[in-house]
């Protein structure tokens, strides 16, 4: 199967480049995420996590889901990564570069085992669901207009519930941050 794949790619080099646009960011994503977990320097770990977010966004775009990819970059890299960084800097400003050895002891092995078990369970649920039995479309296309119509049509209740949730979070944050009047 690998030889067939390589043969078609050599005949049409653009296809090869197209495939690599998915494989390379995926590899970067896995490596960056793994490195961010074992890094000793906390800020380096946060920056590698940001790199993994960017790589995930590129994977989405390369697979044809442009809207999701751009939103991933906008929200995760622009906002969530910054929140993580702020949280680190405001809560642990002086122990950042001290070494914290993540690879010793019992906890890392247990953590990896739990992660793989939950991944297996998740994949099991996904592949046995009716969604996996639907045939894939010939070309991936998700124009923004179609997403907008779906959100406002079939999934409007989910959208409104999300809006209420976010409003509640915003009001809660404002209440927490508001100073007590003397």
């Amino acid at each position: 199967m690998m030889c067939d794949f390589l043969k078609t790619c050599c005949a049409d080099p653009m296809k090869l480049i197209g495939e690599w646009f998915v494989i390379l960011p995926a590899v970067i994503l896995l490596l960056a995420a793994a490195a961010s977990v074992v890094m000793r320097n906390l800020i380096h770990a946060a920056l590698l996590l940001t790199l993994s977010f960017i790589a995930l966004g590129v994977v989405f775009i390369a697979l044809g889901a442009e809207f999701v990819g751009f939103v991933q970059l906008l929200v995760y890299v622009g906002a969530v990564a910054m929140v993580i960084v702020f949280a680190i800097l405001l809560t642990k400003p002086d122990q950042l570069t001290k070494s914290r050895n993540m690879l010793s002891g019992f906890a890392p092995a247990a953590g990896v085992a739990v992660a793989f078990a939950s991944l297996a369970a998740l994949l099991g649920f996904i592949f046995s669901s009716p969604l996996a039995k639907k045939p894939l479309p010939a070309t991936a296309s998700a124009p923004v207009a179609a997403i907008g119509e779906a959100l406002m049509g079939d999934y409007v209740i989910a959208l409104i519930v999300l809006g209420i949730l976010l409003t509640a979070a915003l009001v809660g944050a404002a209440v927490i941050a508001m100073e007590d009047k003397p």
Partner: peptide
Amino acid sequence: AVGAGTEV
């Protein structure tokens, strides 16, 4: 989305 990279 790309402009958000500036903040990092």
